[in-house]
């Protein structure tokens, strides 16, 4: 067994990274196809507000962040679906407000909150058994939702109006997707941190999008990308003594840019000199 894998905390970190990478890969499929990348970034940043509430109330910050992020996700969905605000405007307002709320609350907390830095930038090496269980349970629940409603969600991503006309409950499923996104963000925050969590919600499927013409291939590439980025990033962070969250995101970005350069879509376009779509 490799030297780095001999430590208990490294084993837990690797399992957490692989499970989170796989989960993010699956969720990113719909984030990219439904164009929810900014929603993901907004939800992950608003997690700070939830963490702050947890700290102040003496509740597990992850549980508090789960409830808070889910509420923020629903609020973004509600305001944008009602057409009262553009979606990106709603996100810009909600996530800045939630972060400001978090910073203000944390300033009220007595003393220095040592874990704040780990929430902001992630600390995969400090993942506990409880964190792992929470990650696996959340992962199974989110994956089950995505699998059971896969055909409906794909229809919504492709043509929401036709899906509605066919009797697909587009509103309910949209909120289900936002909830899945919020849950995934919260369990990923421990690994990548609030600042970087949204990266793995976009890059896996964005990589698949560059390489595949069909959603089945895209889904497979997204899942593989999430796992490879997490495992490779963790190993590199150990070897080079770099922050694990940032190294995982850099690995994910490297995979994306490699796919971008090798993209058959782009190469075909270059060959036929067609303008971009």
């Amino acid at each position: 067994m490799a030297e780095w894998f001999a430590y208990d905390f490294m084993q837990r970190a690797l399992v957490a990274g692989v499970v989170a990478g796989l989960l993010c890969g699956l969720v990113s499929f719909f984030v990219v196809l439904k164009r929810l990348a900014f929603v993901g970034a907004g939800i992950s940043h608003s997690a700070l507000g939830g963490v702050a509430i947890g700290v102040l109330l003496g509740v597990n910050p992850i549980l508090a962040a789960t409830a808070f992020c889910t509420l923020v996700a629903w609020a973004i969905g509600l305001v944008s679906r009602k057409g009262e605000l553009y979606e990106d405007t709603a996100i810009g307002i909600f996530f800045a407000t939630a972060m400001a709320f978090g910073i203000a609350l944390l300033s009220l907390a007595v003393g220095y909150y040592a874990d704040l830095f780990s929430f902001l930038f992630g600390s995969i090496l400090s993942v506990t058994q409880t964190d792992l269980i929470l990650l696996v349970v959340t992962g199974v629940a989110v994956a089950a939702f995505l699998l059971l409603f896969f055909k409906e969600l794909l229809f919504i991503c492709f043509d929401a109006e036709a899906a509605s006309a066919a009797g697909v409950p587009t509103g309910l499923l949209y909120y289900g997707l936002l909830t899945s996104l919020a849950l995934t963000v919260v369990v990923t925050v421990k690994i990548l941190g609030i600042v970087l969590a949204s990266a793995l919600l976009v890059m896996p499927a964005a990589t698949g999008y560059e390489l595949c013409k069909n959603f089945r291939g895209l889904l497979a590439v997204a899942a593989a990308h999430g796992i490879i980025a997490a495992a490779a990033g963790l190993w590199l962070s150990y070897r080079l003594n770099l922050p694990s969250g940032a190294t995982i995101v850099l690995c994910a970005a490297a995979l994306f840019f490699a796919a971008f350069v090798l993209s058959p879509h782009r190469r075909a376009r270059r060959r036929t000199h067609l303008p971009s779509a």
């Binding site: 229809f155 066919a166 013409k213």
Partner: peptide, 14 residues
């Protein structure tokens, strides 16, 4: 959008 013609028609079967 990564769907084939058959996949798109299959959506009508939902």
């Amino acid at each position: 959008f990564p769907v084939s013609v058959l996949d798109a028609v299959m959506m009508g079967q939902v």
